[in-house]
Design a binder for these strands. Structure first.
Length: 433
RNA sequence: GGAACGGUGGCAGAGCGGACAAAUGCACUCGCCUUGAAAGCGAGAGGCUCGAAAGGGCCCGGGGGUUCGAAUCCCUCCCGUUCCGCCA
């Protein structure tokens, strides 16, 4: 959520920043929020005035009754009753306006980082590093991973579909081991700076709202309606809310977490796309890293997190590039965002394998995660401020898995296991029939 | 799932219709004392929000109700603990 006070004090500035997202419905929302806020403040002032009167009268009634002046008290009580009626009406109006404003604010996206590249859609995302590609790919790498993996018996999507539904995958044998090895690698590479968490995979509506998926993107999430729970689309969701509603000490920041978790996505908007192999599925495994930080710490953490994701892809020996997400392609909660893409020579596609983002205080305001800032002398300042949140995929299994199968395919159709994964592969060096 | 008891500040814990933003203890901040510290003494200190300020409003798990007035009474939901049942 963006700060209403910003809308109040600098509506033009907010409008200018949001217009960079190239979506006029956002600006309409903004105008509605602005006028709702104006009316809300008027009514709040009126209501508070009446409340103050009721409070004062009540105090006096108490005094009069103690002094045995019941008659005078009766008079005041009658007056208070009348004021109370008006107050209740205003309070009702206030609550209604307040809820309308909240709903409007919840769908207004974050302000993009000033330095973020301008653009309308994903075609405008600039490559900021790479591409790191070999000069050419031999024919034996030009085979899509679903063919190679199915032939090797390590991918069995046909039966996954029978067991569940389309868009579910199943790895078998060395393929399953490879998937788990990737998780273990990602966790081990980030354990130096992150506390490992094993979070719940089902979360409340409030938790899914805090990170920005609700209310606007409810169709993208699996819902367990009977129990009012949602399947997490990423570990970002539970990790962000670990300290929801709490106030942290500045000295405790940054808080850095990593978690392996399954991720569930309905992929409502992408039916029929990437339906083969491991490129898009309703359920997949991912290792996520996340930080709660002060605004001052955030930029360096963003760089660090991108470097960590990049380092893992590099260690796996996969061809890749890094792109920065332009203003028109950014997610609702994002302030600044980078993607790492691996090239899959068989599918002949750049695969988004990691997305690292800085959310400024947008999620923290929704989740109510604050800290006590320190002044220049290191003394606690008055008041509290919202933390900044950052997160990124340390490694998303399926597409990296696909990238390995295609890039490490040998002429005989077998797949060599990248060196760094071998400690986790029970001695398997080559996956073959 | 059934029963009982609970949910108050950073923590522990009192209050159970009127001077309660809320006793007390611990923790915390500042001062005094001390070579330094501890102990002791004194003072201070919650969060949110409106306002230029003065000042106002809200917050005792959430929501609703009764009342001139609710942390305190009533209803409801949520959460926790213990016992029973079920269970990896």
């Amino acid at each position: 959520m963006i700060d209403v006070r910003l809308i109040r004090t600098d509506l033009d500035g907010v409008r200018a920043a949001l217009s960079r997202r190239h979506d006029t419905s956002i600006l309409e929302s903004l105008d509605r929020a602005s006028s709702l806020d104006g009316r809300l403040r008027e009514i709040t002032a009126e209501r508070d005035e009446l409340r103050a009167r009721v409070n004062a009268i009540s105090k006096e009634v108490g005094t009069l009754r103690r002094d045995g002046r019941a008659d005078d008290a009766e008079l005041l009580q009658a007056e208070s009753r009348e004021i109370g009626e008006v107050e209740r009406r205003l309070a009702g109006e206030h609550d209604q306006l307040n809820e309308q404003l909240r709903q409007e604010l919840l769908v207004i996206p974050n302000l993009p980082y000033e330095g973020a590249p301008d653009g309308v859609g994903d075609a405008d995302n600039p490559v900021v590093k790479g591409p790191f590609l070999p000069d050419s790919f031999p024919d034996h790498q030009r085979v899509p991973h679903w063919e190679t993996a199915t032939a090797l018996g390590i991918l069995d999507n046909e039966r996954a579909t029978k067991i569940a539904q389309s868009m579910f995958t199943m790895q078998r044998g060395a393929g399953a081991t490879l998937a788990r090895a990737l998780c273990q690698l990602a966790l081990d590479r980030n354990a130096d700076a992150h506390e490992e968490i094993r979070p719940p995979s089902l979360v409340s509506t409030a938790t899914l709202t805090a990170t920005g998926q609700l209310p606007k993107f409810a169709d993208d999430a699996f819902a367990i309606e009977r129990d009012d729970l949602w399947c997490i689309p990423t570990a970002e969701v539970p990790l962000t809310s670990i300290y929801a509603g709490e106030i942290l000490a500045a000295a405790d920041l940054p808080k850095r977490f990593m978690a392996y978790s399954p991720s569930y996505r309905r992929e409502a908007g992408s039916a029929g796309r990437d339906t083969r192999g491991m490129l898009r599925a309703h359920e997949f495994d991912k290792v996520e890293i996340l930080a709660l930080a002060t605004p001052e710490q955030a930029p360096a953490l963003l760089d660090d997190m991108v470097a960590r994701s990049e380092g893992t892809i590099r260690a796996l020996g996969l061809p890749y590039r890094i792109i920065e997400i332009c203003t028109g392609d950014m997610g609702q909660s994002h302030h600044r965002s980078f993607d790492i893409e691996v090239y899959a020579p068989g599918a002949d596609q750049w695969l988004e394998v990691s997305s690292v983002s800085w959310f400024s205080d947008y999620q923290a305001r929704r989740a109510d995660i604050r800290y006590r800032p320190l002044d220049a002398d290191g003394k606690p300042q008055k008041g509290t401020a919202f933390v900044h949140t950052l997160n990124g995929s340390a490694l998303a299994v399926p597409r990296v898995w696909a990238g390995i199968i295609e890039n490490y395919r040998n002429e005989d159709g077998s797949v060599t296991v990248p060196e760094v994964l071998r400690p986790y592969m029970r001695g398997i060096e080559v996956i073959e029939n």
